[in-house]
Simulated scan of single mutants.
Amino acid sequence: MRRLMLGFLAVAGCGPSQPAEHFGFITRLGNDTISVENVVRRGDTLTIDGVDRFPRVRQRHANITLTPDGSIRRLVMDITTPSEPANERVRHIVADVTRDSVLMTKRDSAGYTRWAFSHGSEPVVAHVPQMYSLYELYFSAALARPAVSTTPAADTVPLRQFYIDREFDRFPLGHATVRRLPGNKADVWHDWLSGVGEATLDSSHRLLRYTGARTTYKVDVTRISEPANIQAIGAQFATLETKNGVSQLSVRDTTRARIGPATFAVDYGRPLARGRKLLGGVVPFDYVWRTGANAATQFRTSAPITLAGIAVPPGTYTLWTIPREKGGADLIVNKQSGQWGTDYDGARDLGTAPMQTETPSAPVDRFTIS
C-alpha cells in the first residue's frame, strides 16, 4: 500500500504541462521591415527567436523565466552578429535577478565578464532596441500591479531595466515608466528612448500594437499569430548587409559651401520617406523639428554671415525648423551644439526667420540639404 501511495503522489505531482502560446512581432519603419520575432510562451517561461537590423544585423535566441509578478527572474540570450569579425561574432549573456540585485555575465571571445547592480524593489525588465517581445513584458509587469490611482490616465508604474546590447559597466540599470491610459492603452518612456511610445493591449495585457510616432524611433509594431521564418529573414538581412554594408537607418551627411569669405558646413541626418508622409505625418506641423534625423543638425561658419536675415557670428550652431500647416516654415538658429535632436532649448536661440516652401516636381525619398 505504501508503494502505491507514493506512486500516486508522483503521478499527481507531474500534472499536465501548460499549453504553449505561439506569437511574435513585426517591426516596420515605413515600408521597411527592421525586426521580426517569434515567441513561445508556457506559463512563466518564454523562448524567443528574432532578427533585427539596427543598424547591424543581429540574430538572437533567448530563454526567459519570469517571477509571479511578471519581472524577469532569469534571462539567457545568445547574440550573433554576422558582420562582426569572427572572434567577436557571438556573445552569450546571462542575467539572474535576485531580491535586490541583477547579476550579469557576458561570455565572448575575450572570456567572461561579470557585473552586479542593485535594483531596489521595482520590477526588473530587459531592454533591447527593436525587440518588442521585451516591451510586452514591460507592460504586463507594470499593469499587473494594482492601480495606484483612481484616475487611470495619471497612474504610472516605475520599472528598472538592463540593456543587453551595451557594455554593462558603462550602462548600468536604467529607469522606465509605464502609464495606464484609457481604452486598453498604455505608454512608456525610459532612459534609452527619446520620447514616449504608445501601446495597444488586450485585456490580458498582451501587446497588440506599438507605435513610436512620438519617439526618435518612428516604428510601427504589430503582433503576429503565425511564426515567421526567422532563419530565412536573417539570411536575407545578412545578404543585403554584405552587399550594401552596415549603414544607419538615417545616414549622416555633410554639405559644404562658400559664402563670400565664409566657409560654411552643415552636418545632418538624412531620413528616408520609406513610403511615409513626412511633413504633417512623421514630422508634425507647428512643432520644432531637428531638420534631419538622430543628432541635431549642426552647422559651422568660419566668418560672419547672414542666414535668412539672421546675423550669425563665426562659430558652431544648430538648425531647427517649424513646418507650418498653413504653409511656409520657420528657420531657427540655436547657439547650442553637439546635442541629440530632441534636446532643443529655445532659450538659446540666436534668431528665427520665416522661410518659403515649394513642392518639388517629383517625389524625393531622402531628405537633402543643399
Results as ranks from 00 to 15, higher is better:
Gly43Lys: 04
Arg114Ser: 12
Val125Asn: 05
Trp192Arg: 15
Arg53Cys: 11
Val188Asp: 11
Leu173Gln: 02
His61Phe: 04
Phe162Gly: 00
Ala20Ile: 14
Ile26Val: 13
Arg145Gly: 07
Pro354Glu: 01
Asp165Gln: 13
Arg256Asn: 02
Lys218Ser: 00
Pro182Met: 01
Ser121Gly: 12
Tyr217Phe: 15
Thr263Val: 14
Val178Tyr: 07
Lys185Trp: 05
Val39Pro: 03
Asn63Ala: 12
Thr98Asp: 10
Arg366Asn: 03
Asp100Tyr: 15
Thr45Cys: 11
Ser101Tyr: 12
Ile369Thr: 01
Thr342Cys: 10
Thr321Trp: 01
Val76His: 12
Tyr210Phe: 14
Thr80Lys: 05
Ser370Thr: 04
Ala62Ser: 12
Asp267His: 12
Met1Ala: 14
Val128Phe: 09
Val178Gly: 04
Ala303Cys: 05
Ile259Ser: 00
Lys277Tyr: 00
Arg145Lys: 11
His190Arg: 15
Phe237Met: 10
Ser302Gln: 03
Gln248Phe: 11
Thr33Asn: 06
Ala116Glu: 13
Tyr138Cys: 05
Gly341Leu: 06
Tyr217Cys: 14
Glu241Ala: 10
Thr33Val: 12
Gly338His: 08
Met131Pro: 11
Val97Ser: 04
Ala235Ile: 08
Gly70Trp: 07
Asp345Ile: 03
Arg209Tyr: 09
Pro304His: 08
Asp155Pro: 06
Gly30Met: 04
Gln339Glu: 13
Asp78Tyr: 10
Thr105Asn: 07
Ala142Met: 06
Pro313Asp: 04
Arg3Pro: 13
Val157Gly: 11
Arg258His: 05
Val76Gln: 12
Phe237Gln: 04
Val97Asp: 03
Glu21Trp: 06
Pro19Thr: 00
Asn184Arg: 10
Asn184Trp: 06
Leu66His: 07
Thr211Cys: 04
Phe264His: 02
Glu21Val: 10
Val102Thr: 01
Val221Glu: 01
Pro227Asp: 14
Val148Ala: 13
Ile233Gly: 05
Leu29Pro: 01
Arg206Glu: 08
Pro129Val: 01
Gly174Asn: 07
Gly50Phe: 02
Asp187Ile: 03
Ala176Ser: 15
Ala308Cys: 02
Gly50Asn: 05
Ala295Arg: 14
Gly30Lys: 02
Ile79Gly: 03
Asp165Ser: 14
Arg2Gly: 12
Ser204Arg: 15
Arg58Glu: 00
Gly315Tyr: 02
Val90Pro: 02
Arg256Ala: 01
Ala238Asn: 09
Ser140Arg: 11
Phe367Tyr: 10
His190Gly: 09
Gln248Leu: 14
Val102Ala: 11
Thr301Asp: 05
Leu350Gly: 01
Ala238Leu: 00
Arg274Gln: 07
Val246Tyr: 10
Thr33Gly: 00
Pro146Gly: 05
Pro363Gly: 03
Ile93Arg: 06
Arg300Leu: 14
Gln336Asp: 15
Trp289Ser: 03
Val128Arg: 03
Lys218Met: 05
Thr242Tyr: 11
Glu136His: 08
Trp192Lys: 15
His61Arg: 10
Ala329Leu: 12
Val246His: 10
Leu350Cys: 00
Thr222Arg: 04
Asp330Arg: 04
Thr242Phe: 15
Ser247Thr: 13
Asp69Glu: 15
Asp100His: 15
Asp49Glu: 13
Asp286His: 07
Asp345Thr: 03
Gly341Met: 02
Thr33Cys: 05
Ser370Cys: 08
Thr177Glu: 12
His92Gln: 08
